[in-house]
Simulated scan of single mutants.
Amino acid sequence: MGKRDYYDILGVTRTSSADEIKKAYRKMAIKYHPDKNPGDKKSEDNFKEAAEAYEVLSNADKKKRYDQFGHAGGASSPNGGGNMNMEDIFSQFGDIFGGGGGSPFDSFFGGQQQSRGGRRVSRGSNLRIKVKLTLEEIAKGVEKKVKVNKQIVCETCDGSGAKDKSSFHTCHTCNGSGSVRRVTNTILGQMQTTSTCPTCNGEGSEITAKCIVCHGDGLTRGEETININIPAGVSEGMQLSMSGKGNAAPRGGIAGDLIILIEELPHEFLKREGNNIIYDLHVSFIDATIGSSVEVPTIDGKAKIKIEPGTQGGKILRLKAKGVPEVNSYHRGDQLIYVDIWTPKALSKEEREMLDKLRDSPNFKPQPGKNEKSFFDKMKEYFE
């Protein structure tokens, strides 16, 4: 079974505002939160599904790609939203519910946070790369291996930023929770708020001796080879996203995303217009007059086509389903062949004498408008 539509999951429409999408997700998160439905696998799946939908629809670029190409547009994780872990989801709560993340019920009802929920989870920055594709690769889809220079987890300290385990001490301000609570007296009674611990920045611990390699950052520069599966039908300027393949985050945080910008390489003979492929075919007036059989290039190789006797310049021939497929669809465009009559510029004496003899023949007299449609009429007829 395919994925459900993100708009249906949150109960919103394509024209819903960012605030409406945010409110819809907040409602779903409260309804299906694990704290409210302990041990309920269906609620947990709904909770993750709603988080995946919000992760895409709350991002302008991802939403635009999803609206245009659906789930195949790379708007979400290429591995699917089902692999979105709880750290990814809880990291959204800082924006949705305020405070340091974790369970929204903690700030509402003063409940106990999960062991990691109250701690601030850092996130690595996104990376952008450009991938150049040939027309053949775009038509068939391709797997690319790219080497990306980025921030990776320090191998010496395993990303902790500390010299050794003894260099960690529980934060004296938050006692390891990563967050601090404040109670304020108001005319309505006591109001409790939760915020990130200012001493440990939400990590729950302090480092007394830093790693000598990364100097406490928990990150170093490195190179990673990444396999990118690019679907057929992508186009110039399209952006794909791979979740978790960007810069690493320190202290076990969530890695950023890898944004892949598609660039089309020009083809030697063919041009692309949408999902159609255009080829300009030059034939001699002799072949156009008495007919011929010629080979033309396509993105699948060579194809032989027939030039009917009496073919006029400007005629459009079509090779059905020889164009580029639509993303996330079985439909494929056509190859359009524009016939252009090639006229020689230099003739021998014998050739000129032969043509002179034919000049006055009625069959060689132009008859404009007779049973012939204009180029624009042909184009209109084709697309209708």
Results as ranks from 00 to 15, higher is better:
80 G>W: 00
40 D>K: 11
319 L>H: 02
329 S>A: 10
110 G>Q: 05
345 K>D: 13
15 T>P: 09
27 K>D: 12
141 G>M: 01
230 I>S: 04
151 Q>L: 12
300 D>W: 05
160 S>C: 12
193 T>D: 11
358 L>W: 14
78 P>T: 05
21 I>F: 06
322 K>D: 08
167 S>K: 12
369 G>P: 03
239 Q>D: 01
134 T>Y: 00
370 K>M: 03
72 A>N: 08
11 G>Y: 06
70 G>Q: 04
62 K>R: 15
177 S>E: 15
38 P>C: 09
157 C>P: 06
343 T>Q: 15
368 P>Q: 09
100 G>P: 05
204 G>T: 10
213 V>G: 10
239 Q>T: 12
302 K>V: 03
11 G>C: 07
373 K>C: 00
123 R>L: 08
57 L>R: 01
184 T>P: 10
212 I>C: 13
228 I>Q: 00
40 D>E: 11
218 G>D: 08
30 I>N: 08
337 I>R: 10
178 G>T: 12
205 S>E: 15
350 E>C: 12
227 N>I: 02
44 E>F: 15
359 R>D: 12
315 K>S: 08
299 I>N: 09
370 K>F: 07
288 A>Y: 05
352 R>P: 11
244 G>S: 06
268 E>C: 01
226 I>A: 07
75 A>Q: 05
229 N>Q: 11
118 G>P: 10
9 I>H: 08
338 Y>M: 14
259 I>M: 11
127 L>M: 09
271 K>M: 09
260 I>N: 00
207 I>Y: 13
346 A>K: 14
8 D>N: 15
23 K>I: 04
299 I>C: 10
381 E>H: 03
280 D>M: 00
313 G>H: 02
190 Q>P: 07
338 Y>V: 14
258 L>G: 07
108 F>P: 14
248 A>T: 08
282 H>T: 05
59 N>C: 10
130 K>T: 15
219 L>N: 07
376 F>A: 06
147 K>C: 01
188 L>S: 13
329 S>K: 02
310 G>I: 06
371 N>L: 03
111 G>V: 14
383 F>I: 00
152 I>C: 03
32 Y>I: 04
101 G>W: 06
137 E>P: 04
193 T>H: 08
265 L>M: 09
289 T>C: 14
184 T>N: 11
278 I>Y: 05
257 D>T: 04
283 V>H: 11
204 G>N: 12
379 M>V: 03
313 G>L: 01
